[in-house]
């Protein structure tokens, strides 16, 4: 079974939970920029939460399924619809019949604070070859995923055989633990390098330079609109350091005073001062920021960070259990002829 792509979208890549264990030779972990929505899409499709999905950015692909199949969408709403037919909203699964053309062109009503990325799970998972232990696309290295690159017109993407396919369409039952607000807040743990307090007191805007490697932040004037005003940070705060290993979510402060927050495709080592690290629970928020989005950094502590992560995982598990119950009830009703 394959999905045939009539359009690739702006940046559509295959991502599973990431490529672990090769960072010591310079290979980024990759994986979904928003791990939460990636897992939700998989659970809705009846997959293991770590199965390979398609990560779509701002404007998604158009594809057709050769056979009937269950898909699920999570994260940003890309205004999905079946060509000539019904809408395909985010946060639920959809049954496709053979020949359906799925269009995910992007939401024309999206604002700067709308989510940036959507995840498409297919029952059975995207079945590209495993490279160095993962199906994730390593865009910088040109390997993994689908031929090591974003999807484009004419690609035929293989889909695995589903272990269990929910024959009913399911809706994600749990509320998003971090509902979209106009100004997104990233909770950050400080490092021994000073500077986070200075950054946390300001309003920021995601710069145009925002991709899976990292995002730049620009100072956001209170008057709004003027993104070119550089922050008046003490000159000694940022700078270069001896190159060391850096994690996803690290906030680097280069000498120019414009922070960089590292994404899932970040280089394994870096030489800029790291003044803080976004907590793991908030990486899902980080991965959904659009260029221009207003954002604030809030200092927190380890206990709060772990509690937030625990709450996210509990919500995911509760959602998964509710889906199983819903699907089980419907399958039972099906079997009983009702």
């Amino acid at each position: 079974m394959t999905l045939e792509f009539l359009e690739g979208g702006l940046l559509t890549t295959v991502q599973d939970v990431g490529r672990r264990g090769w960072t010591h030779v310079g290979v980024p972990e990759s994986g979904p920029a928003d791990p939460w929505s990636h897992a939700v899409a998989n659970l809705l499709a009846g997959n293991n939460p770590g199965a390979a999905t398609l990560e779509m950015t701002l404007s998604g692909p158009t594809f057709t399924a050769a056979e009937a199949v269950t898909i699920a969408l999570a994260g940003a709403d890309l205004g999905g619809r079946i060509r000539g037919g019904r809408p395909l909203p985010s946060g639920r699964s959809h049954r496709l019949v053979a020949g359906d053309v799925v269009e995910l062109r992007g939401d024309p009503a999206a604002s700067l604070s709308s989510l940036a990325r959507a995840y498409l799970a297919v029952a059975g998972g995207v079945d590209v070859p495993v490279v160095l232990g993962s199906r994730s696309t390593c865009l910088g290295g040109g390997f993994g995923g689908f031929e090591g690159r974003p999807l484009q017109i004419g690609d035929r993407v293989p889909v695995g055989v589903p272990g269990r396919a929910f024959r009913v369409e399911l809706v994600w039952p749990s509320p998003d633990p971090s509902p979209a607000t106009t100004e997104r807040v990233l909770h950050v743990l400080p490092t021994s390098r000073p500077g986070l307090e200075e950054l946390a007191g300001r309003s920021w805007r995601v710069a145009a330079a925002a991709d899976r490697i990292g995002i730049r932040l620009d100072a956001s004037s209170d008057r709004g609109g003027d993104d070119d005003v550089l922050p008046d940070l003490p000159a000694a705060l940022g700078g270069e350091t001896l190159t060391h290993g850096v994690p996803w979510g690290a906030i680097q402060l280069p000498p120019d005073g414009r922070p960089i927050i590292l994404g899932p495709d970040h280089q394994t080592t870096g030489g800029y001062a790291v003044v803080g690290v976004v907590i793991t629970a908030d990486l899902a928020i980080l991965g959904q920021l659009r260029p221009g989005a207003p954002v604030r950094l809030a200092t927190t502590d380890q206990g709060t960070a772990v509690a937030a992560l625990r709450a996210r995982r509990a919500t995911l598990l509760a959602g998964a259990a509710a889906l199983r119950d819903a699907a089980g009830w419907d399958l039972l009703a099906d079997a009983a002829g009702g």
Binding site: R20, T23, L242, T243, H244, G245, P247, T268, Q302, R310
Partner: peptide, 27 residues
């Protein structure tokens, strides 16, 4: 090792970054 919740260590000039899963082991 990874089964105890640790990731692969990343050595550099004069440091080692050691990732871990905070749900598996506390700091």
């Amino acid at each position: 090792p990874t089964h105890a919740g640790f990731g692969r260590a990343v050595p550099a000039h004069a440091s080692v970054l050691l990732p871990f899963d905070p749900m598996a082991i506390d700091v």
